[in-house]
Design a protein around this nucleic acid. Sequence first.
DNA 1: AGGTTGACATA
DNA 2: GTATGTCAACCTT
Length: 978
Amino acid sequence: MKQGDHLFLVDGSGYIFRAYHALPPLTRKSDGLPVGAAAGFCNMLWKLMQDARNTDVGDAPTHFAVIFDYSSKTFRNELYPEYKANRSAPPEDLIPQFGLIRHATRAFDLPCVEMEGFEADDLIATYARLASEAGAETTIISSDKDLMQLVTPQVSLYDPMKDKEIKVPEVIEKWGVPPEKMIDLQALMGDSVDNIPGVPGIGQKTAAQLLAEYGDLDTLLSRAHEIKQNKRRESLIEHREKALMSRELVRLKQDVPITEGLETFTLQPPNGPKLISFLKAMEFTTLTRRVAEITDCDASAIEAAHVPVQWGKEARGPDLDPGTASATSTPVAADASSHNGVTHYTPAALASARASAAAGAPFDTSAYVVIHDLATLNAWIGEAREAGVIAFNTKSNSADPMQAELAGFAIATRPGRAAYVPLGHKSGDTDMFGGGLRDGQIPARDALAALKPLLEDSSVLKISQNLKHDFVVMNRHVIDIRAFDDTQLLSYVLDAGTHSHSFEALAERWLGHQVIAAKDIYGSGKSSRSFDMVEIAQAAAYAAEDADVTLRLWRVLRPRLVEDGLVNVYERLERPLVPALAQMEQRGISIDRQILSRISGELAQGAAALEEEIQVLAGEKFNVGSPKQLGEILFGKLNLPGGSKTKTGQWATSAQILEDLAAEGHELPRKIVDWRQLTKLKSTYTDALPGFINPETGRVHTSYALAATTTGRLSSSDPNLQNIPVRTAEGRRIRAAFIPEPGNVLISADYSQIELRVLAHVAEIPQLRQAFSDGVDIHAMTASEMFGVPVEGMPGEVRRRAKAINFGIIYGISAFGLANQLSIPREEASAYIRKYFERFPGIKDYMESTKAFAREHGYVETIFGRRAHYPEIRASNPSIRAFNERAAINAPIQGSAADIIRRAMVRMEEALAKAGLDQTRMLLQVHDELIFEAPESEAEAAIPIIRSVMEGAAMPAVAMKVPLHVDARAARNWDEAH
DNA sequence: AGGTTGACATA
DNA sequence: GTATGTCAACCTT
C-alpha cells in the first residue's frame, strides 16, 4: 500500500445490527430463513462499491475489507467483567444471518476479517493506522461513535444509511470535542449500552465542557478539586478510578497482531457470476437483476449457490465454511402467485412485502392538501368511499378529549395522499377580545355534517393512532365512529414489550421516517400554544403527515396480525374495548368537593402539628419532605442505627426503614411516616382531584391507556383513578368522596382472588382447584398444606406468611423478595419456597416451563393468546435476566386476569341493555374491579347481571378449570360499596 | 423549564 | 418478587 491509495474498511458487525433493527424484521426466504439483515447488507455493499467505483480516481477505493467481531468476549472483559454485560443475546432470527453475511462478503470477493479476543473496532483501528503510516487514506464505513476517535485528516467515517461523511469538523460539531479527545469524552460520559460506567451525573454536554476547560482527562482529574459545582466535583473525585478504567475500555487497540496484511485487501474487479449465484440462493431478486445488468451476465444461466446455514448460537467465527458456492440449487417455493393478473400473497409474504415497500418510502409534505371549501372536502370523502379505508385524526385545542374544541381534522386515502381540513384555527392577534377565526375555513358544522355519514358508515374503515381520543371528540359532536382500526393497538398486540407504540417511534421503525416533532408545532414551556393557534399551513403539514403516516403504518401492521395469528386477540380483546372505554371516560364519576375540602383541611392541620413535633425532635427546622435533608438528620446528626444508602449514595429513608427504627423505640421516624401519609393523601388526592372536575359535566373523567402495559392491563391517568386509597381508614375517607348522582347508587363488583385462580388453572394444581371449588380460605389452605397446621384456629401470623408466599408465586418469587416482605432471614424464606414447591410441584413445573417458553420464543402468552415480549430474557447479566424471568412468569397470570375483565367489559353494555337496565352505567375499572352507577330502582336487578357477565367472561374461549367468583354490592359511596 | 430521583398510592 | 401513575425536591440547562 502506498501514498494515493484508498482503503475502505466496512464495520460489518456494526452494520449487521443496524440493518437488522432498521429494516422490517419479516424478510424471509421462501423456506422461512430470515434474511432481512443479510439483504440490507448486500444492498449496502453493492451500492457502496458502485458509488465508490464511479467516483473520481483519487477517491475510489484501491483496497477494501469487511471487518467483523469474532465473539462477544474480548480482552476488555478481563479489564472489566461487566463490559457489555447487559447486552442481550442476539435475536433468534438474526443468528443464522451472522454466517450468511460472511458468505455474502466472500461472494462479493472481499476479504472477511475477524480475530478472536478483539472487536472489529480494534482491527479497524490497527488497519487505519497502518494505512496512514503508508501514506494512504482510509474511509471507515460506520457511524459508530466508538470509531470517532480514529478520525484524522487521513481517516474519515462514512455512514451509508444517511449518506453522510464524518470528518474532523463533523466530530467537533456532533460531540463538541475534536476526535483525539473522544476517548476522554467517552470515559467521562460512559455508555449505558456497552455498560461503560463513566462518571455519574456527567453526560455528553458536561463532559465536553469540562474537556474544553481542562484540556484532557488527566488534567481534569488532577484539578478536580477546583470545580465549583458541588455535585460534579465530588462525583469526579469519587469516581476517578472508574473514569480511568472507562478510558481504557473505550480506547481502541491500534496494534492488534494481524495475520492478513493490507496488501491482501487489494480490490478485485467484480466477479458477476459468483455474486449472482449467491444472490439467487438468497432470493434477492431485485439485486440479482441489478448485478446481472451491470456485470453483463445472464442471471438465468447461473445456478443458485448452495449456502450452508448455521442456526446455532455460535454461528460466527472461522468455523464457518470459508469456501464458496458449490452448485446445488435451493428449492424455491413461490410466496406470491399470480392469477388473472391479481397477485395472491400468503400472509407472511404480504406482511413482508408491505414492510419492505413502506420502509424508506419517501414523504412529500408539499403534496399535502389544505381543504378550504366543502366541495373539495366532499370530493375527498368520495375518494375515501372508493378506497374503502381512510386514515383520520382530529386536532383540537386540548389534550383532554373531554375539553377539546375542534381545530380541524386530517385524512389520508392512500400513502402520500393526505389533506388537512382546518375548522377552528384562530389568528394570533391578542387584543382584548382574543383572536378571531382565520379565513379560509369551512364552518365546522358544515364540515362535520359532511363527514358524519362517512365516519358512521361501517363499509369504510377508519384508521387512527389512539382512536379512542378521536372517538370521544367526535362523540361529543354526536358522531359515532363505526368500523375502525387503531395502529397503536395493532402495534401493542403484535409487539407488547419490544418497543414503544408511540406514533413517532412507529413511524421511525416501520417507515424509517422522522415525523415533524410535536415540539416544533406546539412550542414548549412558556411559548407553548394550543393547536388552534398554529398557522394553518404549518398545522396542515403536521396533521396531514400524521394521517399519511397512520395509513402507511396500518398497511404494514395489519397483515402482520394475520401472519402472527393475533387477529382474534385484536378483534375480541382490544378493538371492542375502544368504544367501551370511550363511554366510561365520557361518563366520568362524581366526587364530593366539600368532603375533599374538609379532609384537606384536616390533613393540613395534622401535618402541620406533626411537622412541629418533628422539628422539635430533630432540634432544627428542615424540609420534612426532603429525603435528603431527612437522611442527614436521622443518620448524620442523630446518628441512628440501621442506615443504608440508595443507589445514588443518599441515605435511604423508605417507610420500611423508618418503621424498623420506630420499632426500636425511636419517636421521630414514626412521626415522619405519619407525616408522609398525610401529605401524600393531601397532595395527590384531596387537593388534586377537585382540579379534575370538568366544568361542563361537573364530573371527573379519567383517561384509560389501552396500550401502556406489557401484560395487558389498562392504566389510568389524569387523574389516576386506579390508585385511590383503600388500605388505611384515613385513605378510605377519600374513597368515600366518590358518590352517585341523587337517586342512584354506586355498585362495586370485584373478582375474588382472580390471579390465584388463573394460576390454579394454568398450572393445574389439584389442591388449589379443589379449594377454589369448595370455596375455602385459600391462604389458610396453603398454610395448612405447608405447615401442617389445621385451618381451624390457625394463628393469624401463619396465614399471613402463606398469603405472602401465594402472592410471591404470582410475582415470580425470589427468596430475597419474600424475605423482605416478611422481614425474615433469606435462608428461612428459601426454606419456605422449597417447602411450597414440594407441596405444589405443579407450580414449580409451571414456572420452569414458562421460563423455557420465554427463552425460546422471546415472549409468553395469556390463556387467550395475548403476547408479552421479554427480549432481555436471554441477557447475560444475571440480575437483568432474573428480572425478566420473574416478569415472564407473572405476565401470563396478570395478563390472563386482565384479559378476563376486558372480555367482561366488552360484553357488559349489551348484557345490561338486554336485561332492560338501560340506566345502569359502567364507570370505572380498577384491574379486578368494575364500578357502576345505577338508579336505586335498577341496582338490585343489575348486580346478578354484572356478576354473571364477569364470572362467565372467560367462556366460551376458555373453560376455566376453576370457578371465577365475583363479590358485588351497592352503596351510597365507593368506600361502602367496595 | 425539563429531567431525574425517592417515595408511595393501587391491583 | 409483578404491573402502574403522581408528587415534591433537586439538579441542570
